[in-house]
């Protein structure tokens, strides 16, 4: 193995051990604090972690070493090794800390069921008088999701070509364009639609338009990624063949790339619409309009029979969308 590579692996091993042991000492001090009211300063936690990992590293029994560095194959069972026990310790301590932080309380779960009696009775006895109002709100949600998808398509379609590794030339400009678009797509996608909805409900006011804009931004980012990955998976053969006829770059894209991606693009787009309908409900909660907004209002008024009605409608729509989009995608696959 090359020296540089060994150095990198060693660094990775050391870093892994440091993180693991600082995490473990951190967790232990949290538990000590909770149970015995012992306060340990943050700096000390780090120092203990470093000390333990140095000891473990020098003894050559650490997890980092096991993962990153070549070790002699031994027939020791995992429970006879130190790293094996370290992993058990990590899992155990994580579970305990998690239990405390999440305030898990089985007692409440089994004894306080009657608190939910209102909503439960609402679900089993929905207020049918609300049907027309709910359907109107539901239509708003479905159309909002549809328009968000439609508006996202042209943007994502264009961007995806510039975010596909195999289409961008391996020059400085090509690489820069690729990286910028990919980064934007990743960042915008990792910001949840609900956050976009909050931004746009301030920007254009509460209502379905804000919800649509939120879903559109999220859809552009998500579809750009899906589309461009699809482009990267195409057969390069026809592209080469069309290049060889003397076609220019745009012609190569239109005749070599597009025919290969049309049906997967359609499948992804329908899938996205399906996701958008589901997200539109949530987005409505924070000012995106539609059925989500209605649900929020009824819930805050504690009108459980109305809430029940809305929940049934949402479930039905999600179920139907899911089925239809699965069927359409199945058909597209054969094309």
């Amino acid at each position: 193995m090359k020296k540089k590579n060994m150095l990198k692996l060693n660094l990775q091993a050391i870093l892994t051990d440091l993180l693991i042991w600082i995490y473990i000492t951190g967790c232990i001090s949290f538990l000590l604090n909770r149970w015995f009211n012992v306060a340990i300063p943050g700096l000390h936690i780090v120092i203990y972690g470093v000390v333990v990992s140095v000891i473990v590293m020098t003894c050559g029994i650490s997890i980092g070493r096991k993962v990153f560095l070549p070790t002699k194959r031994t027939n020791n069972k995992w429970y006879k090794t130190f790293w094996g026990w370290s992993i058990v310790l990590i899992l155990l301590i994580t579970f305990i800390v998690g239990w405390i932080l999440v305030e898990v309380n089985p007692y409440k779960f089994f004894t306080k069921f009657k608190n939910a009696g209102g909503i439960m009775s609402g679900i089993f006895d929905p207020n049918l008088d609300l049907l027309i109002v709910s359907l109107t709100a539901l239509a708003e949600t479905i159309y909002l999701a549809l328009l968000a998808t439609i508006f996202a398509i042209p943007f994502a379609f264009l961007l995806s070509f510039f975010a596909a590794r195999n289409l961008m030339p391996k020059t400085l400009i090509g690489n820069t364009v690729y990286i910028i678009i990919r980064t934007f797509a990743t960042v915008f996608r990792s910001i949840e639609a609900i956050v976009w909805a909050i931004i746009f409900s301030v920007w254009v006011g509460i209502g379905p338009f804000a919800g649509m804009l939120a879903l559109m931004i999220h859809s552009i980012a998500a579809l750009t990624k899906l589309y461009s990955e699809q482009i990267e998976n195409i057969d390069s053969g026809p592209v080469e063949a069309i290049k060889a006829t003397g076609a220019n770059t745009l012609q190569i894209w239109v005749f070599g790339v597009v025919p290969q991606i049309i049906s997967p693009f359609l499948a992804f787009t329908i899938y996205r619409w399906d996701i958008n309908v589901r997200m539109a409900t949530i987005v409505g909660f924070v000012g995106g309009g539609g059925i989500g907004l209605l649900l929020l209002q009824q819930q805050q008024l504690l009108r459980w029979h109305n809430v029940g009605m809305i929940i049934w409608l949402i479930a039905a729509v999600v179920w139907i969308m899911d089925m239809v989009s699965a069927k359409v995608r199945e058909k597209l696959q054969g094309m």
Partner: peptide, 8 residues
């Protein structure tokens, strides 16, 4: 591999 566009 002929390199034709298969769905056309």
């Amino acid at each position: 591999q002929f390199n034709l566009i298969k769905n056309m």
